[in-house]
Simulated assay, not measured.
Amino acid sequence: MDNKVEVFVPGRLCILGEHSDWAAGYRAINSEIEKGYAIVAGINLGIYLRGYKNEGFYYEYDDKKLCLSYDELLIRNDKDFFEYVVASAKVMQSKYKVSGVKIICDKMTLPMKKGLASSAAICVAVIRVYNLLFDLKLSVEAEMELAYEAEISTGSKCGKLDQICAYGQGLRKVIFDSDKIEISSLYTNSNLQFILVNLQGKKDTKKILSDLNSEFVKEMNTNEGRLISSLGVFNSSCVNEATQKLVDNDILGFGQIMNKFQENFELNVACYSEELRAPKLHGLIEYSRGIKGVIACKGIGSQGDGMAQILLDCGSQVEEIMQGIRDTLDMECYSFKTGQIDLNVIIPITGIGTRMYPSTTIIDKAIFPAIDSGNVYPVLSMILRELYFSKQIKMLI
C-alpha cells in the first residue's frame, strides 16, 4: 500500500504532581487557585501504529477489528475497547474533512488502565497518524489539544497532564495555568533508575476524577480545604523543591520528596474516593521499606491499584529486586531509566554533495527532495521535524 506512516507514542509516567493539571483548570473561574506543577517522563512502553489512507475508518489490534463508514463513525458512542480510538478519529475527520484511514496496531507494550496514560497515548497516536498521513502540519501542542478534546468527549474529567506523552521520551517539568501549559526539559547528571510495578489490581480512573472534582468544587466555595491545599500549595512546593534536587543531582533528596508526597496523598487526597484505598499499593510500599537500595515508592497516575513506581539508588541490583517483587507479591515489573544529559545535535550540511552528483549541481544537498508518505519535503526539514517531535535536545547547531 502507498502512503504508509508509522507512529510510536510512549506512555507517560507522572513522577510528581498528579491531579494538579485539572485542578489548575479551575483558575479560569478562580484565579486564587494555585497553578499546577508536575514532573513527568515519557517511558519505554507504548503503542505502535501503522496508518494508510482508506475509505471510511478501519482499526485493527490482534483479533479486534472495527470497520465503519464516515457516517457510522460520527454517530458511534459505544463504551468499549475502541472508545478512545473512535473519539480521536471523530475529532480529526470532522475538523479536517480528510478521507478515511486504515490503522493497524502492530504492538502495544503499554499496560492499559494502569495510570501510565494509555488512553491519552492512543488518542495522540491516532491523531498523529492523521497528521502525518494527510500532511496537516500540526505541532505537538496542537496534537495534544486535539487528543485532550477527544478524551474528554468520552466523559472523562481528565486534565492535560496525560497528553504530555505526545512529546515522546525524556524528563520534563510541566506548569498548568487554566488552559495554558508551559513545558521545559529537565537535565540531570545521571539517570533516574525506576522499577514500574503492575499491582495486578483494578481501578476506575473516571470515578476517581469525578469524586475528586466534586470535592474540589465544594472546597472552592471557601477557597481552602485539604484537597485544594494538597493539589495546590503543597504540590507546587514539592515539585519545585524536587526540581532543584535534580539540578543538584541529589537523587536521595528527590526520593525523600516522593515519599513525602505519597504520605500526604494518602492522608489528604485518597480519603475522597473509595477507588483510592489501594490495598495492593500499600502492600508494595510496606514491602519496599525493607529492600536495600530502594529510595522511594509511590503510586502512579491518578493512583489506586494500577501501577506503582520505585526509585532506586544507582548501585541497586535491579533484576534481583524485581524478581523478589514477582516472587513475593506476584506483581509484574519493568525496569525504566530516565534523565537527559545536555543533549546537543550537530547536523553537518556543508560540502558539495559529490555522492549525489550530478543532481547536486543544481540543488543543494540540504534541500534535496525526499518522499515521505507520498509527499515531497527538503531532506533537512524532515530531520528538523523529527528533532522537533522528540523535544529532547538542548541545542541545535
Score class of each variant (00 low, 15 high):
73 L>R: 03
27 R>N: 12
61 Y>E: 12
41 A>D: 09
33 I>W: 10
23 A>S: 14
29 I>L: 13
38 A>Q: 08
58 Y>T: 09
41 A>C: 11
41 A>V: 02
71 D>C: 05
24 A>R: 05
22 W>P: 10
53 K>Q: 15
26 Y>K: 13
35 K>R: 15
70 Y>C: 04
37 Y>C: 09
48 Y>L: 11
56 G>N: 08
62 D>A: 10
64 K>N: 08
64 K>I: 04
36 G>M: 10
73 L>C: 02
33 I>T: 07
38 A>P: 09
43 I>Q: 06
30 N>M: 15
23 A>W: 05
29 I>Y: 11
61 Y>P: 00
51 G>V: 03
72 E>L: 01
34 E>S: 14
49 L>N: 07
55 E>V: 09
29 I>R: 14
39 I>K: 10
55 E>D: 15
51 G>Y: 00
34 E>T: 14
29 I>W: 06
35 K>S: 13
74 L>I: 11
57 F>L: 00
58 Y>Q: 10
66 L>W: 00
33 I>S: 09
35 K>W: 04
71 D>T: 12
54 N>Q: 07
26 Y>D: 07
59 Y>T: 02
73 L>D: 00
67 C>V: 07
29 I>G: 12
63 D>N: 15
31 S>V: 10
40 V>T: 14
74 L>Q: 13
46 G>W: 00
50 R>Y: 05
30 N>F: 13
37 Y>N: 11
55 E>C: 04
36 G>W: 08
68 L>G: 04
35 K>F: 10
40 V>R: 08
40 V>A: 11
34 E>P: 14
75 I>M: 11
57 F>S: 00
44 N>S: 13
70 Y>P: 01
37 Y>G: 04
44 N>E: 14
54 N>L: 03
29 I>V: 15
56 G>C: 04
33 I>C: 10
41 A>P: 07
57 F>G: 00
25 G>N: 08
